[in-house]
Amino acid sequence: MSPTSPPTTLFDSDLMSDPHGVYDRLRQASPVHCTTTPDGAPVWVITRYQDVRAALTDPRLSLDKANARTVGRYQSSMPPELDAHLLNMDPPDHTRLRRLVAKAFTARHVENRRLRIQASTDELLNATTDQPADLMQALANPLPMVVICELLGIPAQDRRDFRTWTNSLLGPAPDAAVESRTAMREMHHYLLGIIAAKRARPTDDLLTAMIEAHDERDSLSESELVAMAFLILFAGYDNTVNLIGNATLALLLHPEVMAAVRDGHTPVRAVLEETLRWNPPSTLGVRRFALENLTIGGVDIPAGGRVWVSLISANRDGQFEEPDRFRPERTPAHLGFGHGIHYCLGAPLARLESEIALTSLLKRFPDLQLAVPPGNLAWAPSFHRRGLMALPVIW
């Protein structure tokens, strides 16, 4: 498909079943492709490393939906009550809100949660006794939910299955965005209740701190408070689920690397960094909108045009030696967590959770192996994220 071809959608079953193969062909053909989303809205997809990295910091590309000139159901899936968060903002509002919550996600503050994350991991692994076991359901799904809910201060008895809402919101079908509205409004109602309860009885957690920033310092609006709570739950949960799953699969597919990790020759952190390059949990960065007519990779993008940057494509570009090989010894230079001012706020927490999960898993089950052929594994039907539906294992 050439950049001058009539827009046709590339967001189909081929992309979801083989994103690496599809994006490899796209990279070879052109750095930017005009296509359409499932609901027919035009979008420009950037595929090569240098162009993607530059786009992630380009001030001519805005996250604010007010700058969009095209409209589609997919684009406007989020109820307006949950819109006022970091992924829809440019500076200075983005800077103000990020500063309010950044302290909770610094490496030092995250490290203070190590013992609690370890305890939760051990509890989940202790309950994993039957073979074969699905590691997504046994560990990768529940651990991030426990961690992010504890960070925000959501009581254990009130924790919901956010995975259902996540799947709906990120689903590829044209009607998925419409269906997700009901779930998002239910979540909005739930968050309003939690915020009211914490106003009445403050506790030592991030959500209470955000409430105080609103009530006492007037640092964020009520809508920003609710939307930020949603974003932290949503983003803090889903990406970590798939990082744990994808990293575990990478080890299962590369037994020599797994052996090196067990022997202490390869750090678990190196495995995670290479997973973020080789098979990242987020395939696309947050959509952006051109503030003016611009040209990227020789392709013209009109003002108001919607732009998507392909992280999964950039990370397999010729920028890297043997890009299709899983090599944890390489120096990390991936875009798995983004780049620039919108670099993933929760990256330190995701790394710590995943490190503890993988380390504990290999220690508990030293003979871990896939229970099915790799070709039988099913991936979530989404072109926004790369995550396994199930990861059956034996030991």
Rank of each mutant, 00 (worst) to 15 (best):
S2Q: 15
S13N: 08
S13R: 07
D14F: 02
L15E: 01
D24K: 11
S30I: 03
P31F: 02
T36K: 12
G40N: 03
G40D: 06
Y49L: 08
Q50D: 14
L56R: 00
T57P: 07
A66E: 11
N67P: 11
G72M: 00
Y74T: 13
Q75R: 10
P79S: 13
L82F: 08
L82K: 08
H85R: 12
D90P: 13
P91E: 13
P92L: 14
H94N: 13
R99Q: 15
A102D: 15
R108E: 15
E111G: 11
R114K: 14
A119Q: 09
A119Y: 05
E123D: 12
N126H: 09
N126P: 07
A127M: 00
T129D: 10
T129L: 05
L139E: 00
N141E: 07
N141D: 01
L152A: 11
G153H: 06
I154T: 13
Q157I: 12
Q157L: 08
D158P: 09
R159W: 00
R160L: 13
R163T: 09
R163N: 09
T164H: 06
T164N: 07
W165K: 08
P174Q: 11
R181F: 08
R181K: 14
T182G: 12
T182V: 14
T182I: 12
H189Q: 15
Y190W: 13
Y190Q: 12
L191G: 08
I195V: 15
R199M: 14
R199L: 14
A200D: 15
T203I: 11
L207T: 13
T208Y: 03
T208V: 14
A209E: 14
I211G: 09
E212F: 11
H214V: 06
D218A: 11
L225C: 09
A229E: 03
V241Q: 06
N242P: 02
I244D: 06
L249W: 00
V271S: 00
V271D: 04
L276T: 08
W278E: 07
P281A: 03
S282A: 15
T283M: 13
R288C: 08
F289N: 02
L291V: 05
L291K: 08
E292P: 05
E292V: 04
I301E: 04
G304E: 05
W308C: 10
V309I: 10
R316T: 05
G318K: 12
G318E: 10
F326R: 11
A333D: 14
G336W: 04
H339Q: 01
H339F: 10
G340Y: 04
G346P: 05
A347S: 15
L352G: 06
E353M: 07
E353L: 05
E353Q: 12
F365S: 05
A380G: 05
H384V: 12
R385I: 10
R385N: 12
A390C: 03
V393I: 01
W395Y: 05
W395E: 00
